[in-house]
């Protein structure tokens, strides 16, 4: 059954350029979807629509039966966004404050907030940093902190906008490992990227966007050889005939 349903979604930027052009799409619960495309193809715009950050026409987007813009509050709780730049997303002065920010907005009791903060930090392995200042964490740890902030809101759908940008090898491994664990824990994962190498072997589905339109939507194996015509680099293993090799191996 579809968890996310998007029907004929079109978006124009204030300068009249096309952001999204007649997007229709459905994503099932627990699916691992990679949305790829070159810069300016509309990936981030699509992400922001899923979280209700960009106003939409009525009945274009439904998530778990909730509709935008009517149920924007509940949808924001359900869909957790991890932005491209973790530094810009962090609002708390300590790791605790950062993770507690979402639950505090939900007006939960302090006891429940503390419980959720501890659980989320344990899930991402940052519990020992509870009182650390977020800006002293490494790039990978910051990204994990942002994920913990989203998990503390009990989000079931996690949207990652370029989750590996500006990360070194260890940071990338750390974040990818975390994403896979969350997928195993039955979260729906949507990763937006222009670089397929790291995630495509784990994905159930690959969507390619070009100039705001979905130009391919299929299992990764089926369309991986076509990606270069849309300005996306085909993974080396696929190019050399080894198929899609898991990056963490």
């Amino acid at each position: 059954m579809s968890q996310i349903k998007i029907k004929q979604l079109t978006y124009q930027f204030p300068d009249q350029s096309i952001g999204l052009d007649d997007i229709s799409l459905s994503i099932t619960k627990g699916e691992f979807v990679v949305i790829a495309g070159p810069n300016g193809s509309g990936k981030t715009t699509l992400c922001r629509h899923l979280n209700g950050l960009i106003p939409v026409k009525k009945n274009c987007i439904a998530i778990n039966g909730l509709k935008l813009p009517k149920d924007v509050g509940k949808i924001r709780q359900l869909v957790g966004m991890v932005f491209q730049n973790a530094d810009h997303q962090i609002v708390g002065q300590t790791v605790y404050d950062e993770v507690a920010f979402g639950p505090e907005n939900l007006k939960l009791s302090r006891k429940e907030i503390d419980h959720r903060v501890v659980q989320s930090l344990k899930t991402v392995g940052l519990f020992e940093y509870l009182e650390r200042r977020p800006h002293t964490l490494s790039g990978g740890e910051k990204r994990k902190l942002v994920i913990a902030g989203v998990l503390a809101m009990n989000s079931k759908i996690l949207v990652f906008d370029e989750p590996f940008s500006n990360l070194d090898y260890l940071g990338t491994k750390m974040v990818l490992d975390q994403i896979l664990k969350l997928h195993q824990a039955e979260h729906t994962i949507i990763i937006v990227t222009h670089e397929l190498e790291k995630t495509i072997a784990y994905a159930d589905r690959l969507l390619i966007l070009e100039k705001g339109k979905i130009v391919r939507d299929d299992q990764p194996d089926a369309i991986i050889h076509e990606v270069e015509q849309f300005g996306i680099r085909e993974p080396y293993s696929s190019k050399t005939g080894q198929g899609l090799v898991k990056w963490l191996n």
């Binding site: 922001r48 979280n51 950050l53 509050g73 924001r76 709780q77 957790g80 966004m81 932005f83 730049n85 810009h88 997303q89 609002v91 920010f101 979402g102 639950p103 505090e104 907005n105 939900l106 007006k107 939960l108 009791s109 302090r110 907030i113 902030g149 989203v150 809101m153």
Partner: peptide
């Protein structure tokens, strides 16, 4: 970006305050 990040986490004025 910070405003968007705050909104994406259901930011509201009426939130649980520090005791």
């Amino acid at each position: 970006t910070i405003v968007q990040a705050m909104l994406s986490r259901c930011f509201t004025e009426n939130r649980t305050d520090i005791e």
